[in-house]
């Protein structure tokens, strides 16, 4: 075990792709966990705690594949914001439960598409993990779509969910924007059965279908922004202050110096 983190240079294209997938899961898990004990109902609180554990569990599956002998805390916990490759959608602060459900929907739709493409072609270690994760993703999507249908049953709900889509769709632009080496290499190397452009188009179709099936007025601009060139691309290590704040909160006071999370790695 080493206290040094992995450097991006030592990862091959496939591993860098998996790192992005893992970071997505990790950051999503942190955001879901913020709901523990403050959920809208106790029953839903229980579900959100489960989702947080699922996402962190999925992240662990991927980190283990690319850790090059480092422990989970070094790889998952103590990497700096600039070393993270998650989509900026997932680091965004959830201002209300509507944000949570919209992110749950946008992200899990994307992840399902990516992992289905992975499961079809990848080697055993990657493919079997993708299959395992996909099983739980089905529940996550069921959760998101059911809540979307219910949240829009009042004026306030429709207003809030519309606002969440308006705010979050533009931040989804990097979901499939893996950098050139990572974005194209996996498909040529046989990790993805479909190129990322195609996956993005399929995502757009599902998202548009769902939005139009609901009593929402989401602007064409927001939808267009979601499939345009990202302004800030998390896949290239560009992040917002929200990620820094989130990761800083991991390294808090009240711990003796020899805890794994007592600071960012050297």
């Amino acid at each position: 075990m080493s206290a040094e983190s992995i450097t991006l240079e030592e990862l091959d294209a496939t591993e860098r792709f998996l790192l992005a997938i893992a970071d997505d899961e990790f950051v999503t898990g942190q955001r879901f966990a913020e709901w523990v004990t403050v959920g809208p109902t106790m029953e839903e609180d229980n579900v959100l705690s489960s989702l947080a554990q699922d996402e962190m569990g999925h992240a662990r599956l991927w980190y283990e594949l690319i850790d090059h002998g480092r422990d989970l805390d070094t790889v998952g916990y103590n990497r700096r914001p600039s070393e993270r490759r998650n989509s900026i959608l997932l680091e965004t602060e959830h201002t209300d439960f509507g944000d949570t459900i919209v992110i749950n929907f946008l992200y899990d739709t994307a992840e399902t598409l990516v992992l289905e493409a992975v499961a079809e072609t990848a080697d055993d270690a990657v493919g079997s993990r993708a299959t395992k994760v996909l099983e739980e993703e089905r529940y996550h999507l069921e959760h998101a779509t059911q809540w979307l249908e219910r949240l829009v049953s009042t004026d306030e709900g429709r207003r809030r969910v519309t606002a969440s889509f308006e705010r979050l769709l533009p931040r989804s632009a990097d979901l499939f924007a893996f950098d050139a080496a990572v974005g194209t290499a996996p498909s040529t190397a046989g990790i993805l059965s479909r190129p990322t452009d195609e996956l993005r188009a399929a995502w757009r179709e599902t998202v548009e279908e769902t939005i139009s099936s609901l009593p929402l007025e989401v602007s064409a601009d927001a939808l267009e922004a979601a499939v345009s060139e990202p302004v800030t691309n998390g896949r290239a290590g560009e992040h917002t202050d929200a990620l820094t704040a989130l990761l800083d909160s991991i390294h808090a006071e009240g711990l003796p110096a020899d805890h794994p999370a007592s600071g960012y790695h050297a």
Binding site: D45, M56, R60, H259
Partner: peptide, 18 residues
């Protein structure tokens, strides 16, 4: 939960609170 001192401890603390 945000500052549980390791990955494993965080998972356990979320599960416990759940």
């Amino acid at each position: 939960i945000p500052r549980a001192p390791s990955y494993q401890r965080k998972l356990a603390l979320i599960a416990k609170n759940q």
